[in-house]
């Protein structure tokens, strides 16, 4: 029997693949170990399941809640608030950033305001938000928007301003106006920044939504967590928290996937490598 001889590159690739698998094994192993330990310690009574809940109780609670159907309503409410907050801040924030790029004067005037707004803990505005828009879904979305939009404006503007001066010089020498500079050089250069802002905002939108729900809501996962805490239903709090983790993680993964597809499409447009 003859073994196939591997080239150094094949060997290298095999090593890389092996390394990846080992990392994945560790990641899952760690999760399983933590869950197992948690389950075990509560089962033998070393820690009190009433305070700490346990993986099996979370699963049971989830099944119970899911059977009622109401749970999906709460998930839907939170998801909707989060998506609206995210979309509004991305769109409005980017538009504001572009307008500020177009006018150097406005940019300079706005700068101290952006700095202060960025530093301000938005939760402090909670009571004001309730006074202004009431204690419904609007308040929650507004909270999410407030948290995301300042970061969006600041980061996107930074990306727009980082366009290579050489490229702008070249376009200006060709007779380009400000809008052509924007369209042909500034926006494409800022695309990577825009993508990273998107990823950051996916996280921040969840922060804002849950914060808003703590503040005012009558429905949603944040509401379930607050309610569960008040009536000492640790299982409910844990189940809602785990669901939040899964949703936030899922949304982040989707964004990362979209980014990857976009990059691949861009790369594909220039076929094969030239030596």
């Amino acid at each position: 029997m003859k073994r196939k001889i591997m080239t150094p590159h094949e060997k290298y690739l095999k090593e890389v693949r092996r390394g990846k698998i080992i990392i994945k094994l560790w990641q899952f192993g760690l999760l399983a170990a933590m869950l197992g330990l948690w389950e075990l310690l509560t089962a033998v009574g070393a820690i009190d399941a009433f305070f700490m809940s346990s993986p099996s109780r979370i699963v049971m609670t989830f099944i119970d809640l899911a059977a009622g159907g109401e749970f999906f309503y709460h998930i839907g409410v939170t998801l909707l608030e989060c998506l609206i907050g995210f979309a509004v801040s991305m769109v409005v924030g980017s538009i504001i950033a572009v307008l500020l790029w177009l006018s150097v004067g406005a940019r300079k005037v706005a700068e101290p305001y952006l700095v202060v707004l960025n530093a301000l803990p938005k939760i402090a505005l909670g009571p004001l938000i309730i006074i202004w828009v009431g204690s419904g879904m609007k308040a929650i979305v507004l909270m999410a928007v407030l948290i995301c939009i300042v970061v969006t404006v600041i980061s996107v503007l930074e990306g727009l301003c980082a366009t290579a001066p050489d490229k702008l010089l070249l376009l200006r020498s060709m007779g380009a106006n400000r809008f052509q500079l924007l369209r042909y050089a500034v926006l494409p250069s800022a695309l990577p920044t825009f993508l990273s802002v998107t990823k950051i905002n996916v996280g921040l939108a969840w922060v804002g939504t849950v914060m808003g729900e703590y503040l005012v809501s009558g429905a949603g996962l944040g509401y379930l967590i607050v309610y569960g805490g008040q009536v000492f239903k640790t299982d409910l709090v844990m189940t809602a928290t785990v669901t939040l983790c899964v949703l936030a993680g899922g949304m982040y993964a989707l964004t990362a996937l979209a980014e990857k597809l976009l990059k691949r499409r861009n790369k594909k447009r220039g076929a094969g490598q030239v030596q």
């Binding site: 490229k167 020498s173 861009n266």
Partner: peptide, 20 residues
């Protein structure tokens, strides 16, 4: 003012890396 009558070539080629 820039009138589009000159072709300016800089030290770095400044080809736009996202365009073919």
């Amino acid at each position: 003012a820039p009138g589009g009558n000159v072709g300016y070539m800089l030290q770095k080629d400044t080809l736009f890396e996202w365009l073919t």
